[in-house]
């Protein structure tokens, strides 16, 4: 050990260092106190940061838990490529779960609408996967700045045996002391990025050089305009309305999900630096581009009570 090179002499710590250290602490606390942990990996930028933090938290070892991707079968193709490549590069276990019942019923966002699709393929799919493997703790990348009901959620957030969240029965989390004692049938969702904002996530990606799905960077892509939303035509499953012709526009995505439910924004940002500048200047929050969050002011709270992550 003595001949090891000292690569970084720590000086004062910026707020990003603090956020990083706290997230690592949360992850270590989870694996130390829970029986079977999994990390939900949704392939987006928050998941990229989460995975990066997990690699750091358990260095020089590998994260002592697998990644789980609940595949709705409607993700952008580039997301799936990126997912498989990253898991291979980092040598981590990746579990992919598809709600086969939903597939058999032919559930999709176009045919059945965003609400039913999200409920069956995402919420039910997640519950199936957690029950199937018997995970008692699932680490996820949700942030408190994403939604008003998220702002009130604890870092260690409990779900009953039916995966329901009860906002009125939350445990206080003073200091850094997390109570992980579970009642019968309960499981925990753990959110290490709770105190990060969208900007913090990008700044950290920029600083740490974390790979993200190329869809976050602007490029000419085939899109159709529906209302105020630009929808990318990622494959031939998206039915075009009469007279609708996909146009090549220079677009990127602020959030990633099922492609028919995710709006693109016109942008010229081709680097993390550009994105940071764009985020600082933006007058809109990222959720605006997600179709599923606009079902009503309390829609996230309701979905979460039903077991959505």
């Amino acid at each position: 050990m003595n001949d090891a090179t000292i690569t970084k002499a720590s000086g004062t710590h910026s707020y990003l260092d603090q956020l990083e250290a706290e997230s690592i602490h949360i992850m270590r606390e989870t694996v130390a106190e829970c029986d079977k942990t999994v990390m939900l990996y949704s392939i987006g930028k928050d998941s990229s940061v989460l995975l990066h933090l997990a690699m750091k938290a358990f260095y020089p070892g590998k994260p002592p838990f697998p990644l789980l991707h609940v595949d709705t079968t409607w993700k952008f193709r580039e997301m799936i490529d990126f997912r498989d490549r990253r898991a291979r590069e980092l040598g981590v276990d990746l579990l992919v779960h598809v709600n086969q019942d939903g597939v058999a019923r032919g559930i999709g966002p176009v045919s059945h609408g965003s609400e039913l699709h999200t409920d069956v393929m995402k919420t039910q799919g997640l519950r199936q996967a957690l029950d199937l493997h018997g995970f008692d703790a699932a680490i996820g990348g949700a942030r408190r700045d994403e939604d008003k009901s998220r702002a009130k959620e604890r870092i260690f957030s409990f779900r009953n045996a039916h995966h329901r969240w009860d906002p009125k029965r939350q445990r206080p989390e003073p200091w850094r002391l997390f109570n992980t004692h579970k009642r019968k049938g309960e499981s925990i969702r753990v959110f290490p990025l709770s105190n990060w904002t969208e900007f913090d996530v990008w700044l950290y990606i920029h600083r740490e050089n974390i790979p993200v799905v190329p869809l976050y960077f602007a490029k000419p892509r085939p899109v159709v305009k529906r209302g105020e939303t630009l929808v990318m035509v990622d494959d031939d499953r998206l039915p075009l309305e009469p007279g609708e012709v996909p146009q090549l526009r220079n677009v990127r995505f602020r959030t990633l999900g099922c492609y028919p439910l995710t709006g693109a924004i016109e942008s010229t940002a081709i680097s993390t630096e550009n994105i940071l500048r764009e985020t600082l200047d933006s007058r809109y929050s990222e959720r605006r581009d997600r179709v599923i969050d606009q079902d009503g002011s309390a829609s996230m709270e309701r979905k979460k009570q039903e077991g959505y992550f």
Binding site: A4, I6, S10, Y59
Partner: peptide, 17 residues
């Protein structure tokens, strides 16, 4: 030694994991 993913440190202080 003080091990981190960013290399070994010559010192570490309050708040660091």
């Amino acid at each position: 030694s003080i091990v981190t993913a960013d290399g070994e440190l010559a010192r570490a202080g309050t708040g660091q994991s």
